[in-house]
Amino acid sequence: MAVSPSMAHGHVEPNYIAIWIYLAVLTVLELIVAYAPIPKAAMVGLLVGLAWAKAALVAMYFMHLRFERRTLAIIALTPVMLVTFLTFMLVPDLSTRIYARHHMGEVVKMEHALSKDVSGPNPNVNP
């Protein structure tokens, strides 16, 4: 049987046990960070970084992306890029929500003033 290109490419075997240990250690680090008394923003940043590091280890070594043709890496990175764009497309919506959150009291007062029936409790007001 002729050796197919994928066989010739994929025959490099990484040390899977080492990757397993890295992943386990990163998971323990995540748990430590999640319970550590640090500012929320730092915690979120660290956790996201650790999660992406773990995901990259899985993709590069278990899914062999590191030893594949670059085409596959481009295919794999496409959804990552698109989802990043997608997340940024949500920013206008997020900013209006955050604005509304900061000005909730004023919005509620305006709604209250605009509605003719002010006798009943406003359903928009949180108890």
Binding site: I75, A76, T78, P79, V80, L82, V83, L86, T87, L90, D93, L94, R97, I98, R101, N126
Partner: peptide
């Protein structure tokens, strides 16, 4: 998997938006 990742990515992005926008 790329297509499936888009589905998960969209779901996670929507989750993030709902969470940030919710008091």
């Amino acid at each position: 998997l790329a297509a499936d990742a888009m589905t998960f990515g969209a779901a996670i992005a929507a989750y993030g938006a709902l969470r940030i926008g919710n008091l």
